[in-house]
Amino acid sequence: MIKSILSFLLIATLSVSAMAQASFDLEETKPVALNGIEYGFAIRNESKKDVGSKGSFGRFEVTVYATNKSGCTKLLLPKQTLFGQQDQDLLAQFDCINATGMRLTSKSGNVRAPEFFVPYSTTTKNAEGKTVTNTIQVKAGHILHNGETVSSNFIVIVPESELPRMKVRIREFLDQ
């Protein structure tokens, strides 16, 4: 019994460490780079919002992005973990530290890698005895080409005299 509990704890620890995340504070004009991928954000639009008795707030439309500047294509292959295969495409999560979340706005946004497919061919015999080759596209994982940028937009509301303070949690991909 104790052996099985220790085994479970070991597997859980290894699964969590395999999906480790590094965290960095961001400035709008200074993206962070890790493993050849640059992570940053830009403010697209800014306005002032009056919220009744709560006062005035700043409303910002924010674009978060990840750009592959590594010189090579990054492949993210599916990997079964203790917690399943969810978020296999997640590159980074951006959090606005001073966002209020009021009025149906966000406090965070994610950047995800696009899917990639590979052809898979099978050969079968049809009813007439002829050999027929069928090719289908099978999802093989996620990909970020060299020079490619993926982005996401969201809206935050922050106290009136402040700009959004952003933090990025980057998923570190260990060799598979």
Rank of each mutant, 00 (worst) to 15 (best):
M1C: 07
I5T: 12
I5K: 11
L6W: 06
F8R: 10
F8V: 06
L10D: 06
I11Q: 01
I11H: 02
A12H: 06
L14V: 13
S15Q: 02
S17T: 14
A18L: 13
A20D: 07
A20N: 14
S23L: 03
S23G: 05
S23V: 14
F24V: 04
F24R: 12
F24N: 07
D25H: 05
D25L: 09
L26M: 09
E27Q: 13
E28D: 03
P31W: 07
P31E: 04
P31K: 07
A33R: 14
L34P: 00
L34I: 11
L34D: 00
L34Q: 11
N35V: 00
N35P: 00
I37F: 04
I37N: 01
Y39C: 03
Y39M: 05
G40V: 10
G40A: 10
F41M: 10
F41E: 06
A42Y: 06
A42H: 11
N45Q: 15
E46K: 15
E46D: 08
V51H: 11
G52D: 13
G52N: 13
F57T: 01
G58L: 02
V62L: 09
T63M: 14
A66S: 09
T67I: 05
K69V: 10
K69S: 07
S70M: 02
G71K: 08
G71I: 06
K74T: 01
L75S: 00
L77C: 04
L77A: 11
K79Q: 12
K79C: 04
T81C: 01
T81Y: 06
L82W: 03
Q86R: 09
Q86E: 09
Q86D: 08
D87K: 12
Q88S: 13
D89L: 01
D89W: 03
D89C: 04
L90M: 14
Q93W: 01
F94P: 03
F94E: 02
F94N: 01
I97L: 15
N98S: 04
T100L: 14
G101D: 05
G101Q: 10
M102E: 03
R103V: 03
S106T: 02
S106L: 03
G109Q: 08
V111A: 06
A113V: 07
P114D: 08
P114A: 08
E115R: 13
E115N: 12
P119L: 09
Y120G: 00
T122W: 05
K125E: 13
N126P: 05
E128D: 13
T131M: 11
T133P: 04
N134L: 05
T135E: 12
T135R: 12
I136G: 00
I136L: 09
I136R: 15
A140N: 11
H142K: 04
H142M: 02
H142C: 04
I143H: 02
L144P: 01
H145A: 12
H145Q: 15
N146K: 11
G147Y: 14
G147R: 14
E148K: 15
S151P: 01
N153D: 14
N153Q: 13
F154W: 13
I157Y: 04
V158P: 01
V158T: 11
E160R: 08
E162F: 07
L163E: 12
L163H: 08
L163C: 01
R165T: 09
R165D: 06
R165Y: 08
R165H: 12
M166E: 08
V168S: 09
I170E: 01
R171A: 03
E172A: 09
E172I: 15
F173T: 06
F173S: 03
L174C: 12
D175W: 11
Q176E: 14
